[in-house]
């Protein structure tokens, strides 16, 4: 029998995989991909709570999160393209001019 905690554990593992990707990827596009994994884990969490609490609030939040993720990735890819045009590379560990 599948309970709420099964979905929460799946979501936690997916979130930590995304966190690992964000911390270790060097390419900015790879970091954006890992961020999308983290968004998805949050959505699984929201939808699991919505299903087991028998309330549509989580579903409504899920659709908002999907919309915000679409907006985020649009601006993110635009930023990456802009950085690539100016610097001819998108390795984020080298983009450290502001760090003093």
């Amino acid at each position: 029998m599948i309970g709420l905690s099964h979905y929460l554990v799946l979501s936690a593992l997916l979130f930590c995989l995304g966190l690992y990707g964000v911390l270790t990827r060097k390419n900015a596009i790879g970091v954006l991909m890992a961020v999308e994994l983290m968004f998805n884990s949050v959505n699984i969490n929201l939808m699991a709570f919505s299903h087991y609490m028998m309330d549509t609030a989580g579903l409504a939040f899920c659709v908002f999160v999907i919309t915000v993720a679409a907006a985020e990735v649009t601006v993110g890819v635009a930023l990456v393209l802009s950085v690539y045009r100016n610097r001819n590379m998108i390795e984020i560990d080298k983009l450290a001019e502001l760090s003093g």
Partner: peptide
């Protein structure tokens, strides 16, 4: 697909 395009362009 947007991410893949971003990867291919850069």
């Amino acid at each position: 697909v947007l991410l893949l395009f971003g990867f291919m362009l850069t």
